[in-house]
């Protein structure tokens, strides 16, 4: 094992802002900060879609605010090939629809509410993500 690019302070600060956004969304609108649910209902929901588009617009503006504050775009390095991104994206979209949430909905908001359902979901996807990374990097050598 080799530890690389460890950024505890930036990650703690970024994580705290994610938590702050989740708390504020509950305070203002009484809603869970789940990226999956917000995206799905923004596209297909039947009522009250406006706040979901507003929050998505805010999220997408995040990197530009980061650029203004730091003078550079957030670093994005994508080791996966295009087919891996497409298949991965399809599986994520299917999986979060059946699993009723993702890292933000289950992993942050659900765990903070001490929901057993979210704990089960989070442990499951953390495990399969780890296994997938192990298989792609160390077995298949992608």
């Amino acid at each position: 094992m080799e530890i690389v690019n460890f950024t505890p302070l930036a990650s703690l600060l970024g994580g705290s802002l994610i938590g702050l956004a989740a708390v504020l969304l509950m305070l203002v609108l009484g809603r869970i900060m789940g990226a999956t649910g917000i995206l799905a209902a923004a596209i297909w929901g039947e009522d009250d879609r406006s706040w979901r588009w507003a929050i998505l617009a805010g999220m997408i503006s995040g990197p530009a605010l980061f650029l203004m504050l730091t003078g550079g775009w957030p670093e994005i390095t994508v080791p996966s090939s295009t087919p891996m991104l497409v298949i991965g994206g399809l599986l994520v979209g299917l999986g979060v629809s059946y699993g009723s949430g993702c890292t933000s909905g289950h992993g942050v908001c659900g765990l903070a509410r001490l929901s057993p359902r979210s704990l089960a979901a989070t442990l499951t996807f953390m495990l399969t993500t780890g296994l997938t990374v192990y298989v792609t990097r160390h077995v298949m050598g992608v």
Binding site: A35, A121, M126, T129
Partner: peptide, 28 residues
């Protein structure tokens, strides 16, 4: 719940993106 989450994890491990990470990243 468990099957969906397991499939989500496979997709996350293949791509490196989860929805909450990817949506803001669209802005780049």
């Amino acid at each position: 719940l468990l099957g969906g989450s397991a499939v989500f994890g496979v997709g996350w491990g293949m791509s490196g993106f989860c929805p909450g990470g990817a949506l803001p990243a669209i802005g780049t």
